[in-house]
Computed example of a mutant assay.
Amino acid sequence: MSKSLYIPFRYTLIVVCGFILAIPLLFMISGSLKSAQEIVAYPPPLLPETPIWQNFADAWSYLTPRVIANSFIFSLGVVGLQLVVSLPAAFALAKIPFKWSTGIMATLIVPMFVPGNLTLIPLFVVTFQLGWLNSFAGLIIPMAAQSAFAILLFRQFFVTLPPGLIEAARIDGAGWWRVFVSIALPLARPALATFVSISFLSAWNMYIWPQIVAPNPAQRVINVALAPLAGGENSIISPSVGLAGAVIAMIPVLTVFIVFQKWYIKGVVGTGLE
């Protein structure tokens, strides 16, 4: 294929693939504005005949400001604690020579291959024994402790830092903590953006753990509140209202990705995650 034909073909293929992947998203947005009759019609209409914005008001009555605030507390708490734990650990494993570093890396990698459902019951038992049920501590700390991926991600980035940069700071009398805070951390913005995007998305989309640990309305997060809107044969709630709730729940995640998009792409390339 000649270069003159390759470039148009490449971009056409990208657009087609992007449109196919966006079909569920477009269906969700369109369905959130349809009436109850339009959403169950067959074949379904592509666009609503008359947009029904009341669906969003009805969905908001279930997704109260308290639920939205709980979701932000949970998601940001998980991301923040994982950053506090994983950044220093990753820098130490990448740049500070010490004994047993290989064994520590192996210990971190092994749990990543264990399905989360297998550890769900032991994790719940430990949380129960600590008296953390129906609390933000029970929601956040067990999930934030699962930092193996974050440590490996940041370690991969810190390994790529020029050794001469670290050695020059050490010769000038900087301690390891000063090197980490003043040199390594400012250069880690691409990796930080990658991790924040992935971790916030994962925490925001969690359902099973918040459902079993904190079903109390005072700690209820957005996916637990969305569950009754999923509908069913005996549901009195229109599926359109459920789709409107899903659109509301999607906005924070989409905003985070748009904000960090530039650094996210650099981080994926720079850390070798493809």
Score class of each variant (00 low, 15 high):
191 A>K: 04
16 V>L: 12
92 A>T: 00
64 T>K: 00
268 V>Y: 03
207 Y>F: 14
130 L>N: 01
65 P>H: 03
59 A>W: 00
95 K>I: 05
267 G>F: 00
110 V>I: 10
217 P>T: 11
262 K>F: 15
241 V>G: 10
71 S>E: 05
106 A>G: 10
180 F>N: 07
140 I>S: 11
98 F>M: 09
218 A>E: 10
226 L>V: 02
28 M>H: 13
155 R>I: 01
104 I>C: 10
22 A>S: 08
9 F>A: 14
28 M>P: 12
81 L>Q: 11
145 A>Q: 15
186 P>T: 03
234 N>P: 06
134 N>S: 04
229 L>E: 01
212 I>F: 08
207 Y>L: 13
215 P>Y: 10
41 A>I: 07
240 S>P: 04
238 S>V: 08
152 L>V: 08
71 S>G: 04
155 R>K: 07
46 L>T: 09
10 R>E: 01
178 R>T: 09
251 I>F: 05
132 W>A: 10
128 F>W: 09
212 I>D: 15
43 P>T: 05
274 E>G: 12
71 S>Y: 02
67 V>D: 01
269 V>W: 06
68 I>R: 08
166 I>P: 02
191 A>R: 01
32 S>W: 05
202 S>P: 10
65 P>W: 07
4 S>W: 07
157 F>G: 13
114 V>E: 00
79 V>G: 06
184 A>G: 02
207 Y>P: 06
17 C>N: 12
234 N>G: 12
79 V>I: 15
47 L>W: 05
120 L>V: 07
